[in-house]
Design a binder for these strands. Structure first.
Lengths: 205, 205
DNA sequence: TTCAATCTTAAACACTTGTTTAAAATATAT
DNA sequence: ATATATTTTAAACAAGTGTTTAAGATTGAA
């Protein structure tokens, strides 16, 4: 039997779907639009993936995993906690520069009814397993880190990393900026955010 | 001639449209869904507003104005700059507690192609006219405020105010929290954010 | 009451949606 | 080469989309 699938077709669909879903959202595009973007027939989407919904789910989960993996990568290194945070912000800005639509995409689709609420816990587990949260707790007990709930710490970091990319077009509109202008501001912003967060979260004596 | 419109019909449509558009987005809902939510016929949407698109535009602009007005309200008071910022964050969290979907709604629809990029400058003008930006510049010259570009200052504040509301469902999913749990975290977060931002942006001698 | 302006409705319009079907083309194995 | 499995296609499906139409109900002034 011939089991050797021509991966390029399936892969082309995946990549086109990722691009279109990310920028327009699930409701904002049609199957035919994705097919056309991939240079394919509509029916092929449902041949390789069973439906628009399942195609989406796969893209979404992959996106979430990419996102979580970019965290895990940093947390797993051997570094003092403060250094980990500095590097994390650095890497996060780098990652988001390549995938600027990802945060808005994830947040929106999670809010959608019938959206993918799913096994995020499973995906998030990888982050938990790095032991980063225990490390924070210990630093808090040692008086090195401000005693905030970890949820608030996450929120502080995510806010300051993700929001600047989500608000790109708003800021460009409000201030008549070019893409390059904004990229420059983002670059500076990364440094401000790092300094601000480190100063606030870590207690120097 | 009978010029006395039964405002309640038009108003019911507006309110239903606002609710539906805000939670599902422009592409995420149909004219008939809005009509049903308002207890009306589909044709009435196009009788009072000419199309789904124009109905949306009106809702969107109103939402933007609400948003900007909640800023102007604070900036117009007579207060030291640091106090203005504290009150602003306070009011912003209060406002967003009542309209938690607004930031994601605005950011998403601005990114949509054929979306409302429009006269935001005009709306934003109201904020400019409060003179808040000049006030910041003066404070920067006086050495009272850290010398960041105003775009970065805005970004810092907006990130830390808006993102926590946008990420509500994500955080709830990741940490198995109830609405009340998260509301508690938001309340604390407001204080952390205020302290962090004030400490970072204002230079005490 | 009469009459014209306003408001509301059901039905239809042409078009797009996600999905399926069945036939054609291609590749693989014997 | 023949037969079998896999991939691709065009066409069709019913259901849903935004919008229009034309007729009906309601209103308020003369």
């Amino acid at each position: 039997m011939n089991m050797k699938k021509d991966l390029s077709t399936e892969q082309k669909i995946k990549e086109a779907a990722k691009e279109v879903f990310m920028t327009k959202g699930f409701a904002g595009c049609s199957s035919r639009e994705i097919a056309k973007a991939a240079g394919m027939n509509v029916a092929l989407l449902n041949y390789y993936f069973r439906s628009k919904g399942q195609l989406f789910e796969m893209i979404f989960i992959t996106a979430m995993e990419d996102f979580m993996n970019s965290m895990v990568e940093v947390f797993s290194t051997e570094q003092p906690l403060e250094m980990k945070m500095r590097i994390f912000i650095e890497k996060e800005y780098e990652f988001l520069s390549k995938h600027p639509d990802l945060p808005a995409f994830v947040l929106n689709e999670i809010n959608r009814e019938d959206g993918c609420s799913m096994h995020q816990s499973a995906i998030f587990d990888k982050v938990l397993q790095t032991g980063i949260f225990e490390e924070c707790r210990i630093a808090q007990l040692n008086g090195q880190m401000r005693k905030l709930d970890l949820i608030n710490i996450m929120l502080l970091i995510m806010s300051n990393c993700q929001y600047p990319f989500m608000a790109k077009n708003l800021m460009k509109n409000l201030h008549n900026m070019s893409n390059e202008d904004y990229a420059q501001h983002i670059l500076l912003h990364k440094q401000y955010v790092t300094e601000m967060l480190v100063n606030y979260l870590f207690l120097k004596n």
